[in-house]
């Protein structure tokens, strides 16, 4: 691939990833968030965290299938956007929903499993975000950095459970996300084992 294409694609991905946030801001200003805007904001930012996180996990399989190695340059950007929406999600909960009401925050984080797992996923994303730059890769060493960043699958799985455990009856969306996540993890595991034999590497 020509280097020029990534120069176009990266800003495009950046802009695309901002669309849900812009839409959210627009709807918030125009009354488009319905009767319970806080709940709607919480749900939207949570859903986009998972969509974008799962998209970031699709980068490597897509790179292998297409042989387009430049794609790897998008992974960090997309991953950081997942952290961005997770942060919006958490702040919506902390500031708008509970308004810093600490007794309930603590009760939630420690006693309510769906929030415990969601919060854990958020902490993982923060750690991964904080170690996502070249300096940290160097500092940790590639191997350790890789092991650490495999936690992204755990964050994804916890995020899916967070979603699954909060819905009352209609579990279709978290189930779809869970299956997608499992499939992406599957391609990694399969590839990991198959590598020495097939060498269909990129």
């Amino acid at each position: 691939m020509k280097p020029i294409s990534m120069k176009v694609i990266k800003p495009l991905v950046f802009a695309l990833a901002l669309v849900p946030a812009v839409k959210l801001a627009f709807d918030a200003l125009t009354g488009g968030l319905g009767a319970d805007p806080i709940e709607e904001t919480t749900h939207r930012t949570g859903a986009w965290t998972l969509y974008i996180l799962i998209t970031s996990l699709a980068v490597t399989p897509l790179r292998r299938v297409t042989g387009w190695n430049q794609l790897i340059k998008l992974r960090r950007t997309i991953g950081l956007f997942a952290l961005f929406y997770a942060t919006l999600h958490f702040l919506t909960y902390l500031v708008l929903d509970l308004f810093f009401y600490l007794p309930e925050v603590l009760e939630d984080v420690f006693l309510r499993p769906y929030i415990t797992v969601g919060f854990t996923a958020f902490v993982i994303l923060i750690v991964l975000g904080a170690t996502s730059n070249a300096r940290m890769i160097k500092k940790l060493g590639g191997k350790r950095w890789n092991s650490l960043h495999r936690l992204v699958y755990l964050a994804g799985a916890l995020g899916v459970f967070h979603f699954l455990w909060l819905v009352k009856a209609d579990t279709r969306r978290p189930e779809i996300l869970g299956v997608t996540l499992a499939a992406l993890l599957g391609t990694r595991l399969f590839k990991g084992r198959a590598r020495p034999v097939t060498k269909f590497s990129t």
């Binding site: 309930e104 309510r112 455990w165």
Partner: peptide, 11 residues
């Protein structure tokens, strides 16, 4: 799964 101690009045 969640607290019933408080509620949000819509609006």
């Amino acid at each position: 799964r969640w607290s019933q101690a408080r509620e949000r009045r819509i609006g």
